[in-house]
Amino acid sequence: MAAHLITGAGSGIGAVLAERLLERGEELWLLARDARRAAELRGRFTGAKTLVGDLGDPAKLSWAFGQQQMPIRLDSLLHVAGVVELGQVGELPVKAWQETLNVNLVAPAELTRLMLPSLRLAKGHVVFVNSGAGLNAHAEWSAYAASKHGLRALADSLRHEEHAGGVRVTTVYPGRTATPMQVKVHQQEGREYDAARFIAPESVAKAVLAALDASRDAEITDITVRPGQ
C-alpha cells in the first residue's frame, strides 16, 4: 500500500486527490495548519492520518514535525496548498509578499527537505501543483506569479538532484480551476464567478494521478492543463 502526503486537502484539487487515493485503499497523510483543522480532516477523510504544521510559518515546520509521528516511507508528496493576493507592484505591501512566498514557495521547499529521507526510501514522487501563473505573469499577479515561477525552479532543481536516486518530480500547471481560491480571485478582480467556465478540480486531480501512475521507465516532468472550452 502506497503512502501519500497531501497539502491543501481541505478543498478543491487537494480534497479530490484525497478522496481518490482513499478510494484506492492508499495510506493517506494530510497536512493541517492546526489541531482543530487536523480533526476536521480526519473526520472528513476516514482512515487518513494528519500532520500539523503551518505553511505560513515554514521555519517552524521542522520543530512541529519533531513532536509528531511521521511516515517512514512516502511514495508521494503532493504540494497542492496555495494562497493568492492580487495587487499592483506599486501597492502590494511587504506582508502580502512574505505570506505569498512563505506558503507557495518556502514552505514547499522546507516540507520537501524534511520528507526527502522518506521519499528516497520509497523512490517516491514529488508533485507540485503550480499554476499557469508559473509560466506567464500578468498585471496585478506579481507576488503570486513570482512564487509560482520560483516553485517551477524548485521542482526543476529537485529533479536534477534526486533523479539518480529514483525520486521523480512532476509539475502540473492548471489554468483557472473551479476552486475556493478562484472564488477569492474573482472577488479581488471584482468579477462575477461562474464555476462552469473553469476546469473542474477532478480534471486536475486526474492529471496528478496519471503522473503518479506512470510506469517506472517514464517520468512525466510537466503537465499543462487548460480549459477545454
Rank of each mutant, 00 (worst) to 15 (best):
S203L: 12
Q68S: 09
I220V: 15
A133S: 15
E40F: 08
H125M: 03
E91Y: 09
T100R: 03
P108S: 05
H138M: 13
D57Y: 00
A3E: 03
R168I: 01
E192C: 08
F65C: 05
G134Y: 00
L22M: 12
P180Q: 04
N136G: 08
G47S: 10
S62C: 11
Q67A: 13
F45T: 07
E192H: 10
L92Q: 14
K60S: 15
G166Q: 07
E189V: 09
A38R: 08
L5C: 05
M1H: 08
G87W: 09
A133K: 02
T170D: 04
T170N: 00
A107Q: 03
E99Y: 05
R24E: 12
Q182W: 11
D156T: 01
A205C: 02
S118V: 02
R36M: 12
P108L: 00
E192L: 13
R73I: 04
A195H: 11
P201Q: 07
T46Y: 08
I199H: 03
L101C: 11
R191H: 11
V80D: 02
K184L: 14
D54Q: 01
L17Y: 02
L17E: 01
E202F: 02
A205K: 02
A196H: 11
G25A: 07
V127I: 06
E202A: 15
I72V: 14
L135Q: 12
R197Q: 15
D222I: 04
G43S: 10
P201V: 04
V80Q: 02
M70E: 12
A35P: 11
V169T: 09
T179E: 05
A196E: 13
T171F: 04
S147V: 04
A143C: 09
K49Y: 03
A38Y: 00
K123Y: 00
A200F: 06
